[in-house]
Nucleic acid binder design. Structure first.
Length: 478
RNA sequence: GGUCCCAUCGUCUAGUGGUUAGGACACACCCCUUUCACGGGUGUAGCACGAGUUCGAAUCUCGUUGGGACUACCA
């Protein structure tokens, strides 16, 4: 059962009530994959019916995030708020058809009702009390200064059934939907479940692919489609991204990892994020294939092969993808990306301190194993620092450390040896000091030039740093 | 509480009635390396449980358990 073709119209409908969420990006990505594969049309719509919470800064964050990731759409961005006139018309239509009604229950009434239901172990929800208010009753409420919300009349005890693209048949009874849903607030603003139906219908959306947290909304929305006598789109509910504690990833609780801009700001590779996001819940048909481009995924992406269960966000796996992508880049490319990344940032990395050739050598030392551009500050900082801070105690477990350094200093000063032939320098040192174990020879030198025993290849590092810097650093210690 | 979804190594997954249950990440060990990495190799580790259907069940059915989502005049 493949329902997609070139007449398919899908959508990405983020809400600008927060910055771009990783899960939003992922469902957008799935929608785009499907659209591109079947040459359908992708509509971008901002769900900004909540005027209080929607902010223009979030709009640009979301759009920038999508652009950065390479998520493209065909139509839009549209704003749901632009359709408010149309929304009100449809509300009126529902009212006229007696499919919706005015409800004067106050928030307090509802709270009391819910508390009561909870106490009695009943399902919480509105009891549809105001479904059949007489004209007089309504007038009385109005005289009391009460303003109504509009509720949509759900058919009683009706099974809403649909064939979900990823979950299979799903059946939810209207009596389990928490009472007649409010479609328009007291102030006339329409609510999500209503606006989304009108907008999707007007945009001639054929497939709604979204997170499984919308499962119950879908039942409400199908009821609305039916009430309005509109064609019901095909639905697909993809699994959620979980945190390591197996709960829905949220920006409030999980901060940076849920925030797309965080990845961008730290210099992650968008291609790696995309690959990880796809691979999270879907497997490339070729056995064992994990690394694939967006273009390759578009060729073969299939929503029916989507996992049904949530994927736990795995930083290790993400970082593995990141490393794989950096490995596939040349040193020159990584250097270019770094220059671009650090361009407007305050950073220790000063590209004018070394020649282009030296920079390329430097980057080739750390390129493999790099997760994100910002990590370069840590792995490369010793090339740029004026003085290296070293804990004196670091030398404690290294016998002959000062012997090595003094010898090295002498060799360099006398120009018997040079950092430009680091292998020979190191060899001579090993012979002169009679140190066999590499660690005892290398660690003191590492400490002196970088302040740490971990880092890029020592010989190459010495060569790039050059005699002058190395001599200076040794002199600070001996 | 109610409704719905989900269930293969710690994690992501392959598997659609007959497999020594495969791969990847992570972890451990070994090799390579006069250091650090990279790379290569090996290993530890899984079908939640119980019935049923069947000659045969990770795979089909039911139940149990566990986890999650939803349950707004948010989206």
């Amino acid at each position: 059962m493949n329902t997609f073709d070139s007449s398919s119209r899908l959508r990405i409908p983020p809400s600008p009530t927060g910055s771009l969420h990783l899960g939003t990006a992922r469902t957008a990505l799935y929608n785009m994959l499907l659209c591109k594969r079947y040459q359908g049309t992708l509509i971008f719509r901002l769900e900004d019916t909540d005027k209080e919470r929607s902010k223009s800064e979030y709009v640009s964050d979301i759009i920038n995030g999508f652009k950065w990731l390479g998520i493209e759409w065909d139509e839009g961005p549209f704003r749901q708020s632009e359709h408010s006139f149309r929304h009100k018309l449809v509300v009126q239509e529902l009212l006229n058809k007696n499919l919706a009604y005015e409800c004067f229950c106050s928030q307090e009434d509802l709270d009391i009702l819910r508390a009561e239901q909870r106490k009695n172990n009943q399902a919480e929800g509105y009891d549809n009390k105001h479904r059949n208010l007489t004209i007089e009753e309504k007038e009385n409420f109005r005289k009391l200064g009460k303003k109504p919300v509009i509720r949509f009349k759900l058919n009683e005890n009706e099974d809403i059934i649909w064939q979900d693209l990823v979950k299979g048949e799903i059946k939810i009874n209207t009596s389990d939907l928490g009472g007649d849903p409010v479609i328009a607030k007291e102030n006339g603003d329409v609510l999500y479940n209503f606006a989304v139906v009108v907008d999707d219908h007007d945009a001639r959306i054929t497939h709604v692919v979204r997170g499984e947290d919308h499962l119950h909304n879908t039942a409400k929305q199908i009821a609305l489609y039916k009430g309005l006598d509109w064609d019901v789109p095909i639905f697909g509910h993809v699994p959620l991204i979980f945190s390591e504690h197996k709960e829905k990833l949220s920006k409030r609780k999980h901060g940076d990892i849920a925030n797309v801009s965080n990845y961008k700001n730290k210099g992650y590779l968008a291609e790696a994020i995309i690959n990880y996001l796809i691979a999270m819940s879907w497997t490339y048909p070729e056995q064992g294939r994990e690394i694939f481009s967006l273009e390759e995924a578009i060729e073969v992406f299939d929503i029916e092969k989507m996992s049904k269960s949530p994927a736990i966000y795995d930083q290790n796996k993400l970082e593995w993808f990141c490393k794989e992508y950096f490995k596939r880049l040349s040193s020159e490319e990584v250097l270019e990306k770094a220059k671009e990344f650090f361009k407007d940032k305050e950073t220790i990395i000063n590209f004018s301190l070394y020649s282009e050739q030296e920079l390329i050598s430097m980057f080739s030392l750390v390129k493999d194993g790099l997760v994100k551009i910002i990590d370069l500050e840590e792995s490369l900082n010793f090339f740029f620092q004026d003085t290296i801070e070293i804990e004196k105690s670091s030398f404690d477990d290294l016998p002959q450390a000062f012997d090595i350094l003094k010898t090295m200093h002498k060799l360099l000063i006398s120009q018997e040896e040079s950092t430009q032939d680091p292998k020979k320098l190191l060899n001579t040192l090993s012979l002169k000091t009679e140190i066999k174990k590499g660690k005892n020879l290398f660690f003191p030198i590492r400490l002196v030039i970088s302040g740490t025993t971990h880092g890029p290849d020592l010989a190459e590092s010495l060569r790039i740093l050059g005699n002058e810097k190395v001599i200076k650093r040794i002199e600070k210690v001996i």
